[in-house]
């Protein structure tokens, strides 16, 4: 329903291309426009790769941080609290700068732009993932643990086969949210020179002096990407629900 509207908006922008608009910079019909468009789109690879790598790491880390938060042990619980509060308090941009410029001084390692971006995004997101997992796991009825206990399942098996499959179904919308958020926040990694969508757009603006058109294309690129992710998450949600209900 929204997509035709967006196309309509896009068309009206194009039709108004006279005085203020200079759509020629990204007009696929002209050779320069085509080259520019391809240049902009070439950032897609790193935006997607960076976001997917970072979210994969942050989901696993988040789960590993969430589990001690559910323990009876006071020290394990405080580890979870400290991690979440500390990591959550650092702005993503600050974390990116700190990891890229600061961490190499501390460890005498050189970190590539890509991995610095991945580490910063994954670290920052893991604190949120940890809270999402904790909420999801806590929402599962105590009876499920008791039933697992009574059929002799070990703790890892109880988590893997009984609790997490149910918890993940419940937190899927929140996980989808985080993926969308991650895709958007990956634009911040442009500040350390990552060749992703935003960086490409910035570079083109510098040579073409048409920020309005270039950034509009950038907006549309993110929009398209995120609509695809939303659709995928919704599809996954539906599929997992029919598992239980059909």
């Amino acid at each position: 329903m929204k997509r035709p509207l967006i196309l309509l908006g896009f068309a009206s922008l194009l039709s108004g291309c006279s005085a203020q608009w200079g759509w020629y910079v990204v007009n696929p019909a002209s050779p320069t426009g085509m080259t520019n468009l391809q240049f902009l789109l070439s950032g897609l690879y790193y935006t997607v790769l960076l976001s997917l790598t970072a979210i994969s790491i942050s989901v696993v880390t988040g789960l590993l941080v969430a589990l001690p938060g559910l323990s009876d042990n006071r020290y394990l619980r405080s580890f979870n609290r400290v991690y979440v509060e500390l990591v959550r308090a650092v702005p993503i941009l600050v974390l990116i700068l700190w990891v890229y410029y600061g961490l190499p001084q501390l460890t005498s390692l050189t970190i590539s732009v890509f991995w610095a971006g991945v580490i910063a995004l994954a670290l920052s997101d893991s604190a949120f993932q940890a809270e999402i997992f904790r909420a999801g796991i806590q929402s599962i009825n105590k009876g499920q643990y008791e039933a697992a206990h009574s059929v002799s399942l070990s703790y890892p098996d109880t988590m893997r086969f009984v609790i997490l499959p149910q918890a993940i179904r419940r937190i899927l919308p929140a996980l989808g949210n985080q993926l969308v958020y991650m895709l958007k926040m990956s634009s911040l990694v442009s500040v350390i020179g990552m060749q992703e969508l935003t960086r490409k757009a910035n570079e083109l603006v510098v040579t073409e002096y048409r920020p309005l058109e270039v950034y509009t294309v950038l907006v549309l690129e993110y929009l398209a990407l995120i609509l695809i992710v939303s659709a995928a998450v919704r599809w996954l949600e539906r599929r997992m629900q029919t598992d239980e209900r059909n």
Partner: peptide, 29 residues
């Protein structure tokens, strides 16, 4: 291993089929 239990609220695993509910314990434990 010696003691089985049946609960007031059944506590079946809702995401597993009946057969999977029954085989999970024997297979894993």
């Amino acid at each position: 291993a010696k003691v089985g239990m049946v609960f007031q609220q059944f506590n079946l695993f809702p995401h597993l089929t009946v057969l999977e509910n029954l085989t999970l314990g024997p297979v894993r434990a």
